[in-house]
C-alpha cells in the first residue's frame, strides 16, 4: 500500500475514531465495547460508523454496568483478545474501580507473571461543559497512583490518532483519558498514523524562562499563557506530560533544570494530586537548581458546580496561570 502523506484537517474525535478503525483492521483480536458505542456511535460520537464496518460482535453495545464491561474486558484480554473498553466518564469508572485496581493492575504480579491483562480502557475526563460534579471530575491522578497500569492523556490530534495502537501493543492495562473539551479541536494530519512513544512527555512549546507542566485539557491553556507571556518578553516552555504513569521524569527534570522555574497546571484538585507528585519530584531531584519554589494551578477544592460562572470560577483560568508565572519570576 502506498503511504498516504496527504494532509487533511481532522478533529480529535475523528482522529480517535480513525485510530480505532485502523487497529480493528490491523488486528482481528481488537474489539470495542461500552455503553452506546454501537448504533449511537458513543456518547462523544467517537465510534460513529464503526458498527456498520465491523458488525455487532466487534462494536459491542453493553448493558449498563461499568464493572461488568470492564470485568468482561479483563476476561476477554485473558482469553486472547485485545479489547478496547469505552467508559463514558472517569466519574462512572468508579463503578469499575475494583476491576481496574484489584484485578487489572495486580494480576500479572500476583499470578507470578502467568497472566497479563492487555486491555485498553478509554474514558473522558474533565469539566467545562456544565455537566456538574458527577460527570466532570479529573480523577486520572488517582489512577496514576496505582502500579501495574499505565495512564495516557492525549492532548493533541496527533496523540489521539497515534497513542491507541502502541497502547494495544502493550502487554499491560492502559487507561486513556480524553478531556471532553478536546473532541472538537482540529489539526492537520496525514493519512499515516503518527509514531507516538507512549513512554515520553513532549515539549509542546520550547522556552527558556519557566516550565509550564501540564497534560490533557489544560495543555491548550498553558499554550495560551505562553503566547500571552511572549508579548511580555517571557519565554515559557510548555511540557505536555502525555503519560501520567509512569511519569517521564527525565523530560520534566531536563526542562526544569534549564528554566529553573516550574508551574504545574492540573485541572484536578490540588491536595494529593498528580500536580503534587510532579512538584515533589522536582523538589526532590532539582531543588538546588530552582530559582523559586515550584507552584501549582489547580481547580478549586469543591465538587464541580453546574452554573457556568461557578464552573469557570472553579477551573484553572488564564489569569491564574499568568499570576503563577509572574510569581515564580518575581
Amino acid at each position: 500500500m502506498t503511504p498516504d502523506f496527504r494532509m487533511s484537517t481532522v478533529s480529535y474525535r475523528e482522529a480517535m475514531r480513525e485510530a480505532i478503525r485502523d487497529a480493528m483492521r490491523r488486528d482481528p483480536r481488537v474489539f470495542l465495547m461500552g455503553e452506546d458505542v454501537g448504533r449511537y456511535g458513543g456518547c462523544y460520537a467517537v465510534s460513529k460508523g464503526l458498527l456498520e464496518e465491523f458488525g455487532e460482535e466487534r462494536i459491542r453495545d453493553t448493558p449498563l454496568s461499568e464493572s461488568a464491561f470492564v470485568g468482561a474486558g479483563i476476561g476477554a484480554a485473558l482469553g486472547g483478545l485485545r479489547p478496547i473498553v469505552e467508559v463514558m466518564t472517569v466519574n462512572f469508572s468508579l463503578l469499575a474501580l475494583d476491576q481496574i485496581v484489584n484485578t487489572a493492575a495486580t494480576l500479572r504480579h500476583m499470578s507470578g507473571n502467568q497472566f497479563g491483562v492487555p486491555l485498553v480502557i478509554r474514558m473522558t475526563t474533565g469539566a467545562g461543559r456544565q455537566l456538574a460534579a458527577q460527570h466532570s471530575h479529573s480523577l486520572e491522578g488517582w489512577y496514576a497512583h496505582v502500579p501495574g497500569i499505565k495512564i495516557l492523556a492525549p492532548a493533541t490530534i496527533q496523540d489521539a490518532r497515534g497513542m491507541l495502537w502502541p497502547a494495544l501493543q502493550d502487554p499491560d492495562p492502559v487507561l486513556i483519558f480524553e478531556h471532553n473539551s478536546l473532541y472538537n479541536e482540529t489539526a492537520a494530519l496525514t493519512g499515516e498514523p503518527p509514531e507516538v512513544d507512549i513512554r515520553k512527555a513532549q515539549i509542546a512549546r520550547p522556552g527558556r524562562d519557566v516550565s509550564l507542566l501540564t497534560y490533557g485539557g489544560t495543555v491548550a491553556l498553558a499554550l495560551e499563557a505562553a503566547r500571552t507571556l511572549e508579548a511580555e518578553g517571557i519565554q515559557a516552555e510548555v511540557i505536555d506530560l502525555r503519560v501520567l504513569r509512569p511519569l517521564d521524569e527525565a523530560t520534566i527534570l531536563e526542562s526544569v533544570r534549564r528554566t529553573r522555574r516550574a508551574v504545574v497546571i492540573d485541572e484536578a484538585w490540588r491536595s494529593g494530586s498528580l500536580a503534587a507528585e510532579v512538584c515533589a519530584r522536582i523538589a526532590e531531584e532539582a531543588f538546588y537548581e530552582l530559582e523559586a519554589p515550584p507552584t501549582r494551578v489547580c481547580s478549586a477544592e469543591v465538587p464541580m458546580p453546574y452554573a457556568k460562572h461557578l464552573e469557570q470560577a472553579a477551573l484553572p483560568q488564564l489569569a491564574d496561570v499568568l499570576d503563577a508565572v509572574r510569581g515564580v519570576l518575581a
Binding site: G75, A76, L78, L81, S111, F115
Partner: peptide
C-alpha cells in the same frame, strides 16, 4: 485465574473469557 478477595469480580471476567472463546 484467581478470584479477587473482594468477592464476585471474577464473574464478569468469566463472561469476558467466554466472550473471547465465542469470538
Amino acid at each position: 485465574v484467581s478470584w479477587s478477595s473482594c468477592i464476585a469480580n471474577q464473574l464478569p471476567q468469566a463472561v469476558g473469557v467466554a466472550y473471547a472463546m465465542k469470538l
